[in-house]
Design a protein around this nucleic acid. Sequence first.
DNA 1: CAGAATCCCATTGGATACTG
DNA 2: CAGTATCCAATGGGATTCTG
Lengths: 141, 141
Amino acid sequence: MDVTDSSSHSSESGRGRPGARQEYKCPIRDVLDRVGDAWSVLVVSNLAEGPTRFNELKRRVEGISQRMLTVTLRHLERDGLVSRTVLPTTPPQVEYALTELGHSLCGPLDVLSGWATANQPLIRASRERYDGEAGELTGGE
Amino acid sequence: MDVTDSSSHSSESGRGRPGARQEYKCPIRDVLDRVGDAWSVLVVSNLAEGPTRFNELKRRVEGISQRMLTVTLRHLERDGLVSRTVLPTTPPQVEYALTELGHSLCGPLDVLSGWATANQPLIRASRERYDGEAGELTGGE
DNA sequence: CAGAATCCCATTGGATACTG
DNA sequence: CAGTATCCAATGGGATTCTG
């Protein structure tokens, strides 16, 4: 494991401007920004099953707003994980598909989701224990 | 790949309350919420090297605010990934360490960061290409 | 030292309406 | 159909201050 940030800013960089971190951080960061975005993962995993059109995707990811789907797809496209193909039909159809790079991400993502699925019970349990204890202390009772 | 949300809400669940998604989603989600949080990853990877005290951690992750370090540690603790031990000294010392569960996450995290490191050049390139084209269209010249 | 609390602005993201 | 644009509530997170 070596995700340790090396190109870190001295804390003065982000001073005064809340939320405005900085542009250059460790390489991992920006990838995690994408992976960490729950929508991205759901979209990618959906696309893993094959090319899909916008509204179809919106239906499948169900719960995502139109705006977020657009934004997410743009990000994924920008990162070269997803390709966007406009079919010259009327009405216009747009097909999204994983690129090679996108497919290659599925492996690592799978490992992670495997871990998540396997350990979710433990995590859930830990949370309930934690929350329970917290409640005891606060509630006094 | 099957991260597809199965316990999805009909869109009525989150209706009206922006940002307030819902409590139950697919198992993967809450794990990704933690992994996706850049700070969590940095903290975990730091703790992977051994137990560390609060301020030491703050120094090492450099760039993290005190508040975020506290919050992040609380989350990790709640999820059972990190243990918190108060040494009864004066002044009080608090040591944070990875639990077994926490350590087990390092593997998957490593896979991911491996992918990230390996493909970062491609991603960067893709972004520049994308941004370049976007600029052409918008700026006209 | 370790952390809780407060203030406050910036970004997020849902809802809605409009366009080609 | 496939978006784009706008509005606005909620959250995130830095800075600062106070405590045991």
